[in-house]
Amino acid sequence: MNIFRFVGDMSHLASFFLLLAKLIYTKSSTGVSLKTQALYLTVFVCRYLDLLVAFVSWYNELMKIFFIAASAYIVYVVATSTRNSNASDTYRVEFLVIPALVLACFVNETHWSKGGWSLNVMEILWAFSIYLEAVAVLPQLKMLHQLEDTTNITMHYMASLGIYRAFYLLNWVYRLYYEGYWHPIAVVAGIVQTLLYADFFILYYQSVLLRLPS
């Protein structure tokens, strides 16, 4: 594992702890999009089905289990939060889920000549999870643009997700050059996803960094 991948993973891990800290210490899920969190849970469940059939490393296994468990817990907390003002969580997620599913059925890494149907279904779900992750942040971005007072911790959560994406891009450049590792589906979707965070970083710069006490 190279340093870019590791920093990306740690930033991703930090994003979970930031969101959990916000939910637990402020006892409020205001500003957190339930739709985005439910999409992330879907992403992790669909992508990490290989937990059952392929062992890569203890690092991978534990991170995958943590990502699924933590996102399930976050969805539970946000969904059951009585003080959640979800009036601005209005993104039409069917416009994300259905195109991602259709695209995954046509553009994927299946090899029907080898492997059973279940392995190929897992490939379709893997591609679906990649496409869905690329756009899953959009409901959260829409909320941030609509809400006046987004708490800084929600913004830091988004920033750590953006850093995670950026370091994964560096990781792919490194791996392509040194290992010949190349998953075009993941890379193209990863570039799209990172570009979406560029929009967020402009907002982050304006609303958080410019507001820092001098």
Binding site: A54, V56, N60, W126, Y168, G180, Y181, W182
Partner: peptide
């Protein structure tokens, strides 16, 4: 090792 590399990322 160019095609069908194992998916060892998160």
């Amino acid at each position: 090792a160019s095609k069908a590399a194992a998916k060892d990322e998160l």
